[in-house]
C-alpha cells in the first residue's frame, strides 16, 4: 500500500517529463524559451559539482530560516494563545509578516544583516514564520476545554500544562504549519540569495539562477530550480517524518 502511494507521484512525474520531451521535439521552441528535460539533465550533469555546492548553501540558508521561523512561531504562538492581551495586541500585527512583499524588503535586509547567509536566513524566516505562528495559535485554541478544566482541577497550570497538554494537543496543527513553512522557507531563501548571495565559487542556487538567466542558459535555470524544489521536498519530508514519529500512536493524521 505504501509502495503504491509512492509509485503514483513518480509515475505522474515521469509521464509529465515524457510529454514535455515530446512536445519540445515536435514544436521545437528556441532553446532559450523552453529546454527539453534531457537538456536540463545534461546541464545538471555537466555542472554537477557547482550545482551540488550551490544546493548545499541554499539548503543551509533554508534550514536556518525554517528553524528560526519554527522556533519563533512556536514560542510567540504559545504566548499569544495563552495571554489575551497579546492575542488582541500582537496577533493582528503579526499578520503583517504574511503580507510582506519580500522582494521589496530583501534589499533592506542586506543593509541590516550584510551579504551572505545571514540575510538568506532572515528572508527565509520572514516568509516561513506566519504559517507556524497561525497554526500554533489555532492548535492551542482547539485544545479540549474539558481537558483544560481537568488539568486545572489537578493544579496543573502554566508551563506544566503547556508541556503536558497544550503542546501535545496542538502538534497536529503545528505540523501542518511547519509543512507549509518548509516550502516557503526555500522560496524565501532563494529570494534572499537574489540580493545577498555571493557570486563566483561561493554561489548559492539563487545566484546560479540569476547568472544562468543572464547567460540565456534556460536549461541550467531549470536544473537549479529543480534542485531548489528538492531542498523544499527534503525539508517537507523531515517535517513529515518528525510528525509521524510524534503522532503515530494517537492521532489519525499519522496513521
Amino acid at each position: 500500500m505504501r509502495l503504491a502511494r509512492a509509485v503514483a507521484p513518480v509515475a505522474t512525474l515521469l509521464v509529465a517529463l515524457v510529454c514535455w520531451e515530446v512536445a519540445v521535439l515536435v514544436l521545437k521552441p528556441p532553446a532559450f524559451l523552453v529546454p527539453a528535460p534531457s537538456a536540463v539533465a545534461k546541464a545538471a550533469y555537466e555542472e554537477a559539482p557547482m550545482l551540488a555546492a550551490a544546493t548545499m548553501r541554499t539548503a543551509l540558508g533554508s534550514a536556518g530560516g525554517f528553524m528560526v521561523a519554527g522556533a519563533l512561531g512556536l514560542v510567540l504562538g504559545s504566548a499569544i494563545a495563552a495571554v489575551g492581551f497579546l492575542r488582541r495586541g500582537i496577533y493582528p500585527l503579526a499578520t503583517i509578516f504574511q503580507m510582506v512583499p519580500l522582494v521589496a524588503v530583501a534589499p533592506l535586509m542586506v543593509i541590516w544583516f550584510g551579504y551572505g547567509v545571514k540575510t538568506t536566513i532572515a528572508a527565509s524566516a520572514v516568509v516561513a514564520f506566519f504559517p507556524v505562528l497561525a497554526s500554533t495559535i489555532d492548535g492551542f485554541a482547539s485544545v479540549d476545554p474539558g481537558l483544560r478544566e481537568l488539568f486545572a482541577m489537578h493544579g496543573s497550570r502554566g508551563l506544566s500544562r503547556w508541556r503536558k497538554l497544550d503542546l501535545p494537543a496542538s502538534l497536529p496543527s503545528i505540523a501542518t504549519g511547519l509543512r507549509i513553512a518548509a516550502g516557503l522557507a526555500v522560496i524565501g531563501a532563494v529570494v534572499g540569495e537574489f540580493v545577498s548571495g555571493y557570486g563566483g565559487r561561493d554561489a548559492p542556487l539563487g545566484i546560479v539562477i540569476l547568472t544562468a538567466m543572464r547567460e540565456a542558459r534556460t536549461d541550467l535555470v531549470f536544473a537549479a530550480v529543480a534542485l531548489a524544489a528538492i531542498v523544499g521536498f527534503s525539508l517537507f519530508g523531515i517535517v513529515n517524518a518528525a510528525s509521524w514519529l510524534l503522532l503515530r500512536r494517537w492521532h489519525a493524521s499519522a496513521r
Partner: peptide, 30 residues
C-alpha cells in the same frame, strides 16, 4: 550582475579570485 560577459572577460584577464562578488540591486545605500 552575475553572468554578464564583462565579468568573464575581466576574470580571464585578471583572475578575480579574491574579489567578493555580490548581486547588484541598484540600491545605493550600501
Amino acid at each position: 550582475d552575475p553572468g554578464l560577459p564583462f565579468v568573464k572577460i575581466l576574470d580571464a584577464k585578471y583572475g578575480g579570485d579574491r574579489l567578493k562578488r555580490v548581486p547588484a540591486t541598484g540600491a545605493l545605500a550600501t
